[in-house]
Design a protein around this nucleic acid. Structure first.
Lengths: 174, 174
DNA sequence: TTTTCCATGTAACTCGTTACATGATTTC
DNA sequence: GAAATCATGTAACGAGTTACATGGAAAA
């Protein structure tokens, strides 16, 4: 449902065709959404059938005609409803990486630390990337900042986990 | 894949049947995983076909026989591989609630604050619930603590967003 | 001239959920 | 005797991804 909201929200600002929408999202929102082409086309078709969008075909050269989409009134109210729904509800996050944590004790401490350090590297990289994203206009900036906050918390957390399971030998060897 | 890891991890500790597994997860891990019955049965069948589990039928009374599952050696190595995979990779989180944020400016500030306050209430409730969960044994406790940390960050974040979009009139009216 | 980009589409598949059905057994 | 629990199962659906196919246009 939030993917539809995304498409509607973008189309409300400027009319676009599928390829363009996908491109835009991929370029400017890759850090927070990953909408595949197939999904974009599928949703646009569906929303057209629902009467939320009207496509206009633009022929240019010998390639497949662009279908530029425009919100209808029904589309606008769908947008309004979804936006309110989205803003007012709290979506629970599920951390798929936590199931491993629950079984951490079935590994020798040293190996556990190694594995988690690997995770840490990837996490750090994502954080670096997020912090390097050029500032966005308007409230899109909020999304970036949210991500950065989240990643910082994750990093802190991971460091604490590593510290906790680190074997004593670390100190003895020093 | 993490659901399989979960089932294998539990079965490695004690042999159980499907109903029992579902019950256990529902009772003790509801805050971090939600594994439906149908999914549990499906995965157990699949993993049995893969040769990771051997079921033993236990007839008791006139009800459907319990299928108690036990890890095979192949199951054990699958578990080992998945655990390492899970621990060493960083899974990116997607916040479905962020798409609304990106379009926040299409609403009057006052309404936006109202909607987000609603979200805040639900978030606070989940945080309260997470903080009230009785302490878990071993590293399962880590999962709870992770959730609490995450929710605290979310709450902080949400408060800041609300503060930022709060209309000036608040001060004027006081 | 070969590669990349533009622009669409679709069939098959995965993962998981929903919503049922069955029928004995225990609890109120 | 009604309701909840035990214990399984399955058919249908939904959302999304993968992996293709097409074919002209622009760039290397």
């Amino acid at each position: 449902m939030e993917r539809e909201l995304l498409l509607l929200g973008l189309l409300r600002q400027t009319d676009m065709h599928g390829y363009q929408l996908h491109e835009f999202i991929h370029r400017n929102m890759a850090s927070c959404v990953d909408l595949k082409k197939a999904t974009a086309y599928y949703l646009l078709d569906k929303m057209t059938e629902s009467g939320w969008l009207i496509p206009t075909e633009e022929q240019e050269g010998g390639r497949p005609p662009r279908r530029v989409y425009q919100l209808t009134e029904a589309g606008e109210s769908a947008y309004q409803a979804m936006l309110r729904e989205n803003l007012s509800t709290h979506y629970e996050a599920r951390f798929t990486g936590d199931i491993g944590l629950a079984f951490l004790d079935s590994l020798p401490a040293e190996e556990a630390v190694n594995l988690l350090s690997h995770r840490r590297t990837a996490l750090q990289a994502e954080l670096d990337a997020a912090q390097t994203v050029p500032p966005h206009v308007g409230t899109s900036q909020l999304v970036i900042e949210h991500l950065v906050r989240h990643l910082r918390t994750e990093l802190d957390w991971l460091d604490e986990v590593i510290r906790r399971i680190e074997p004593r030998s670390e100190q003895e060897n020093t």
